[in-house]
Design a protein around this nucleic acid. Structure first.
Lengths: 332, 332
DNA sequence: TTTTCCACAGCAAACGTTTGCACAAACCTT
DNA sequence: AAGGTTTGTGCAAACGTTTGCTGTGGAAAA
């Protein structure tokens, strides 16, 4: 037995499909009597509108796309949850497209968005993306786009990030307050704005504190494993290091591994401070002191902005920077 | 400037829309000459088919839905990645629906699937779901459904799980091999089949090993926090406990917290063994011995099954149980 | 009673594709 | 040269809704 359509209901009730449609949508033009007749029969038949037809007719899809580099355990679940909730609460559905950090996939994903007639796009850029030209197909069609987390500075759409310079300032300042002056720094993919900003912040704060910046104190790494190796290398080249700053949970995990491998005690022999929005700092003993920012908030804010743009409540590109705070645990 | 349609191209080329359609779809009925003429113009205009219209006409959406309780860091990212990749590689798109573990939301989500005419559904059940009656709307329409991870036994669709009894057997056996006979057990939501099965396995293995089962050695908890409290309670009621078995990463984290709070050393004073598919066991020092199963594999297998059913390559309900293995690290 | 207006329902077109069928021209058969 | 087949294209309907417009009957106003 096939799904009933509006036309089926119309036939059964000796009505015109248009009347049935209006009745179901509570259009004022239809009498209360027919309205209930229609709605009751619809209920009885288990009628559900064919969204495909509605979409075509209304020329929209009810879809919002999330373009993301990849799902990993460190950042995304909370961001993701926030986005899904916000999007769902507003009657849209979310479709996920991963780029695996490649530009080609990101381009394809943009095309997919266009084909599916998504009504808005949330983007956390692939690390390969050096500019935003591949988003032109969407922007040309006036599809609202909001960038978050991994963004590029030169964007004319809304964006949501955290204040990367401020975040490193908080971290390094805290280390300095505790007397550390030889500070190792572990940074992520140098292609990402987020990395560049945090690195810039790091250098800036050192300068403000009159601590000389040294190349051999810092390193870039793509993941935990590399982070661990780089941390080891730093400690070997400069045994006088008394503290590590790590710009992400992944790198923090790597650094702790290296420290444990060196059999150094935290915080007595070496301190470590990170940036986190997840559970990772709580896993360790002592727990890791870190600057906390909320992935959930980033996601929620990004989704809210996007919905605002879709509803045309927001006209101009807004660049939101979320605040964060120092969480003192036992690692410094 | 609006997006060009097939009709636009037809007009420009003095052709019928149907011919253009066929040309674009490489239908053999169209001459090579017109085919290239059409395709070149399409290229030039940046034509992309209106998927909404295609969907309506073809009566499908190209969408696969993922119904999941909620995104948390412990299980889902890897499952999720696998699913997205598999689904994407086969030309479908993924839409995510969270139930927040409530039955109401799960019912709504089923309705949404029906409305959007999704072509297949992957389900990890909400803990409130006691039966599968609310999936009837989908099954009636012959929409392929595959259950994974959190399933119910009485299902007539495909399912992918891990062998829960076997997994606990491996764990408890390992503890016993190391001489432990007073073993605490931490279990999750008792409404879930996964919990029941693991609990059943736990008792069964104890019996096989001639270890008496005691109520006060075990507890159920919904999250890390509760897990920690319950572990404390167990240790206080029964100080002779020498080992903990935890059925999930969340609970393992809770148990370790409790153990650290009691200032007991792992593994000298108390052992712990878990079940994991993630990084959590690696975070600790010593790393936590655990039974490893692959979330990625679960996701990939579930997606493959679903695609098989969609393509009608798989006719009968298949119940796949994935293998797992003991990973000996330092906690036992 | 006639006019005006409103409430309600129907008609038909439209959204952009796809596809079964018809048809013409060109190509092979004998 | 007549018939049959192939090749390429067009026609029109269909997918299930929504919506501007038209039209009707009856109530209210004159």
């Amino acid at each position: 037995m096939n799904r009933p359509t509006i036309t089926d209901i119309a036939r059964l009730l000796q009505l015109n499909p248009s009347t049935v449609s209006r009745a179901l949508n509570n259009h004022p033009d239809v009498s209360p009597e027919t309205r209930t007749r229609v709605q009751e029969l619809a209920q009885e038949l288990g009628y559900a509108p064919n969204q495909l037809a509605v979409n075509l007719r209304k020329r929209h899809s009810g879809l919002i796309a999330l373009l993301v580099s990849e799902m990993n355990m460190f950042f995304n679940p909370s961001v993701f949850r926030a986005i899904e909730q916000e999007v769902y609460a507003n009657g849209y559905h979310l479709i996920i497209l991963q780029s695996n950090n490649t530009l080609i996939r990101e381009k394809q994903n943009v095309q997919i968005c266009r084909q599916l007639a998504v009504e808005g796009v949330l983007v956390s850029l692939a690390s390969e993306a050096q500019d935003l030209s591949h988003f032109a197909p969407l922007l040309d069609q006036k599809v609202p786009v909001v960038f978050f987390d991994r963004i590029l500075p030169q964007n004319h759409s809304c964006s949501v990030t955290i204040d990367d310079v401020e975040i490193t300032r908080l971290a390094v300042q805290h280390l300095a307050d505790k007397g550390h002056r030889r500070i190792g720094g572990l940074f992520g993919d140098p292609n990402l704005t987020i990395t560049r900003e945090r690195f810039r912040g790091f250098k800036q704060v050192l300068q403000e504190l009159d601590i000389p910046f040294e190349e051999k104190h810092i390193a870039f790494a793509q993941d935990s494993e590399q982070g661990s190796q780089q941390a080891l290398k730093i400690m070997e080249q400069e045994p006088a290091i008394t503290a590590f700053f790590t710009m992400s949970d992944e790198l923090m995990v790597g650094a702790v591994q290296a420290i444990e491998q060196k059999r150094l005690r935290i915080p007595e022999e070496i301190a470590i401070i990170g940036i986190s929005d997840g559970f990772a700092p709580e896993f360790y003993n002592p727990k890791i002191t870190h600057i906390r920012h909320s992935g959930y908030e980033v996601g929620a804010e990004a989704a809210r902005l996007l919905l605002g743009v879709i509803r045309e409540e927001i006209k101009d590109p807004l660049h939101v920077q979320l605040a964060c705070r120092l969480v003192e645990l036992g690692s410094v």
